[in-house]
Amino acid sequence: MTFNIDFLAWRKIAIIFSSIFLVVSIGSLFIKQLSWGLDFTGGTLVELSYPETANISEIREILLRGGFEGAQVANFGSSKEVLIKLPGTVSDSLGSEIVSLLSASNLNQEIDLRRIEYVGPQIGSELRDDGGTAMLIALAFMMLYIAFRFQSRFAGAAVIALIHDVIIVVGIFSLIQIEFDLTVLAALLAVIGYSLNDTIVVSDRIRENIRSMDSDNTHEIINTSLNQTLGRTLITSLTTLLVLFSLYFLGGELIKNFALALIFGVVIGTYSSIYIAANALIMMGLNKDHLRIEEPENADDNLLP
């Protein structure tokens, strides 16, 4: 695949596009907020499997009569599976109480217990803090590594692209109110890794071309680099999306949101490594001088394999 697209001609449009996305995402995070999962809110969750289609309204009524006010009852995956959530509760025995209550009122049917989860209030807020810390540390280490391997402008550009990606993925989760739990958090960190992968491949090519091309025109160099790496970027995104879709459709309910976060992340990460990271490099005024003092050309050839 060879391309000759003038990516940077689209710069302004890309910036407007990204800005709109960012504003909508941040706005949604403020207004609708995230639909935090049980891992972060604390509370009790029970998943049950009925032999036949479960009667949701009946279950609701039984729970209400049993004193479980505020219980959210919904199907999970299929019409036989039921998910009951009691966010914010602090007693660790509610799960088993619900199971025995429902089993007692369904004597003719055997209910299969799929899972019970209880997360105490202190754990919820801790997990949220730890997640945030992990993300900040990851970003800091990335910046350091890139600044060390490339140049501080590349580090800045990569981190801008990463923050862009994370905000938009979280924004999408807030917009369509998909539950944000621990697995989604893991996916978000994987998005950081993935998006960075892309950005590094592009940056690597820019660095190489700055040294080897005769041109002094940063625009031209970056554009050439983007075209040269576009084939690879698309193919890798495609293979990654292939496995993510197979996870989304076959991986089961517990993995669905994880796969979804990564699907959004891969698409946005691919876009951002082309438009955001490269744009940021130009805006930060990258030029030939910034890379001149480094290792001599073709040093790479002496390495493995």
Binding site: G131, T133, A186, G193, L196, D204, L303, P305
Partner: peptide, 30 residues
């Protein structure tokens, strides 16, 4: 092979950094 090596190296090391941070900060599913 020669030219791609450094790119692969950089790209993988950064992903590995994320994975190791996940490993040390994460619990359970993470």
């Amino acid at each position: 092979y020669n030219r791609a090596f450094l790119t692969i190296w950089d790209a993988n090391v950064t992903t590995l950094i994320v994975a190791v941070i996940l490993l040390s900060y994460g619990t359970g599913p993470v």
